[in-house]
Design a protein around this nucleic acid. Structure first.
Lengths: 94, 94
DNA sequence: ATAAAGTAGTTTATAAAATAAACTAAAATG
DNA sequence: CATTTTAGTTTATTTTATAAACTACTTTAT
């Protein structure tokens, strides 16, 4: 039987966000937006979902006078990502 | 920028169907149902979608007196699957 | 000084998808 | 011969993804 694919991660945009965050300490909203090509609205929604699941930590502050949203993956998020990748391999490795 | 993940394949059940079909010549509806744990209704719908996209070929016949639906991956499906796996690697390989 | 345009997002509405429930039709079973 | 089972399909509901519209503030130009 096939392992279940965490629906929170099995989404192109959320997976891209997580993928990005895997390789950095933290990333700004605008950077993620650029890298993923997502609209701000969509990104905002998906970041919220990852945040509410405890997969990422979102910090809102200011860069000078502009709002600054920074995201970083949590231990829980890292573990979920690894699990997801692991499950996925069952589907794609021949 | 991240490559797009073929939405037809980026679905747990459809991906499982394709994954199964990759390793066999053809598979019966009931076999796919057992292996994936999907409900018949859901499976029927997803098989239709893959079929309409030309990713699989569906043959309806009879085994004795019972209806028999058989599925096999097409060249197009194989290529789409390979493309999908390739794109996916961009997300999950660190 | 203020109107216009840009930045950094959030909220809400809509479109698309996944899934299950209800249904059909025939066959096997008791 | 009535009930259950098999093999599916169709339809309805729920969930999701996504974009459009909006908010709040800042920078630039006049």
């Amino acid at each position: 039987m096939f392992k279940e694919l965490d629906p929170l991660l099995h989404s192109q945009l959320r997976l891209a966000i997580m993928s990005l965050l895997m390789s950095v300490d933290s990333a700004e909203f605008t950077f993620i937006k650029e890298q993923t090509g997502a609209t701000a609205g969509n990104l905002s929604v998906q970041i919220d979902k990852l945040s509410e699941a405890g997969y990422i930590e979102v910090t809102k502050s200011f860069k000078g006078k502009k709002p600054l949203t920074t995201c970083a993956v949590t231990k829980k998020g890292l573990s979920a990502f690894e699990n997801y990748v692991n499950a996925l391999k069952q589907y794609i490795n021949k």
